[in-house]
Design a protein around this nucleic acid. Sequence first.
DNA 1: CTGAAAGCGCTAACAT
DNA 2: ATGTTAGCGCTTTCAG
Lengths: 329, 329
Amino acid sequence: MYDVARLAGVSQTTVSFVVNNVASAAISQETRDRVWAAIHALGWRPNAMARGLRTRHSQTLGLISDEVATSPYAVRMILGAQEKAWAGSQMLLVVNTSGQRDIEQTALQFMLERRVEGLLYATMYHHEVVPPPEIGLVPAVLLNCFVADRSLPAIVPDEQQGGYTATEALIRRGHRRIAFVNETIPMPALFGRLEGYRQALADYGLPFDPTLVRRCHSNAQDTFAVVRELLELPDRPTAIFCFNDKMAMGAYDAIKRAGLRIPQDVAVIGFDNLELIAAQLYPPLTTVALPHYEMGQRAVELLQTLSAGEQLPPIQHTIPCPLVERASI
Amino acid sequence: MYDVARLAGVSQTTVSFVVNNVASAAISQETRDRVWAAIHALGWRPNAMARGLRTRHSQTLGLISDEVATSPYAVRMILGAQEKAWAGSQMLLVVNTSGQRDIEQTALQFMLERRVEGLLYATMYHHEVVPPPEIGLVPAVLLNCFVADRSLPAIVPDEQQGGYTATEALIRRGHRRIAFVNETIPMPALFGRLEGYRQALADYGLPFDPTLVRRCHSNAQDTFAVVRELLELPDRPTAIFCFNDKMAMGAYDAIKRAGLRIPQDVAVIGFDNLELIAAQLYPPLTTVALPHYEMGQRAVELLQTLSAGEQLPPIQHTIPCPLVERASI
DNA sequence: CTGAAAGCGCTAACAT
DNA sequence: ATGTTAGCGCTTTCAG
């Protein structure tokens, strides 16, 4: 910066003023031009570490995740977070712990040393977590997870509304016997979506038939078997709501194998909106999207207001899961 | 740090020495203990910006990508890069440009201001790029892409070997009529895999039959149509090598629809090893993996030796694509 | 074995 | 309209 000042024939302070467009001291246009010319001539570029040291602002947000950043599943949360951070001219420091506690600890230390102005703690699946206590040293928001006592702000998908939406879409197409193939592992998604399913049936005056609700491991192969059973029922369902898109793949196989057509004979709806699967299946799969991108955005948004010093109660933010219509219902 | 020093009854220098384990000046164990006790009592943590300012080392690597970090496709490159960076106690600054030139420019400026010690320029698909010239200001390596004149080190997958491997696997199972459904967009993968296919046929003394090589858009639906044609051939192929896993989904549909079994009647092999698809298909898809994780690792590895000051010619590193056996051949 | 002091590159009062 | 000056929190010679 001194070199630039010398070349432009001004003081180093002046250079700082023109670079940062300081309003308090109006600098003549002519001087500005000289300074910028010198900057370009020298190829000078501010040093963010020096600036941060002085201003006590790192312009950095940290994101600690189990697998989010490195598995195909919820990766769009990162995009949402990144773009929001970017819009506030902050950078996102991302670290993947693979769920290992010691890595998580070190990652946290690293980020704290870098003086991140806020922390995102994200998980691949929506579930309860207990983050390391040091997370409270800076503003923090949970992404796709929550703590038992809700003492930390959290952004999660609205599972119940998602289940409701899927079921309602089917009902509106005239289906009355709607099967639901649910997950086996107890998690918010399992309970929420089931609740949404029941609620939708109730709202539309349809009976809840327990024989139509099955549980199986969330993979195509196990779902294949379950759906085959469902199709052999005397009064077989005309629509199947699958807990997720992977399971829908198995449902497709079972339905086609039974010589039935989708959606004419049996409609299928999924959950997750994994493009890779949903768009490639034939017919393309109608599904409910997990609003990952928006969740990432909202989380950073919240983090930014928090780190701006605003005092807010630990809001538990629930983001709706929209219907993505393709051709399977 | 001054506070810590005061509490421990030593100078600030001493604190620095014990924190950094400086060998040159041996400090009594007793003093060390006092210092650490003070550190913990105060909850002090070094300031990476101050340290970086002084040492002129940011301990940071930058990764600029079009979509890698935020699409499910090549996301494991990030994991590989991250873990390698981590192993060298460096952090990875990731930014996604969505392919927009202006974002790319700003991202680059940001990273340069933060004094990244090296830059990774990554793309989702293996193709030629022309990165912004400023990339040359710090050590840089291209990841999954390359420049026309090969003036920058690059890490790319070995497409030809991958094509060879897929074809050879089929040949070894006794197949003689092997179809290849290739991509339409001209790119290294298209040419490389085709070349590998031809080479394998030649090496095993099998004729190259142009009617068995088709091209179509890389999606399931178009592949469905192409494979149906292939199956209607008078002397139909007994095995199909699909350019990628998405296309294999379409091939599966066509084969099952024709009442044929996989792999007994027709074998299928894919490319990419997208778990989401390959593991869920029935039967599980044998495929060739794009070595994304390893590519990420190697790129950072190379970057680290480069930023350690070593002078190397711009190596074009080609990483082999391994066969992933499941049950479709 | 430990401390004093200089300085990394910048910002922002405070002067002029 | 521009310059002087004092740090921000650390590392690292050089002394003792």
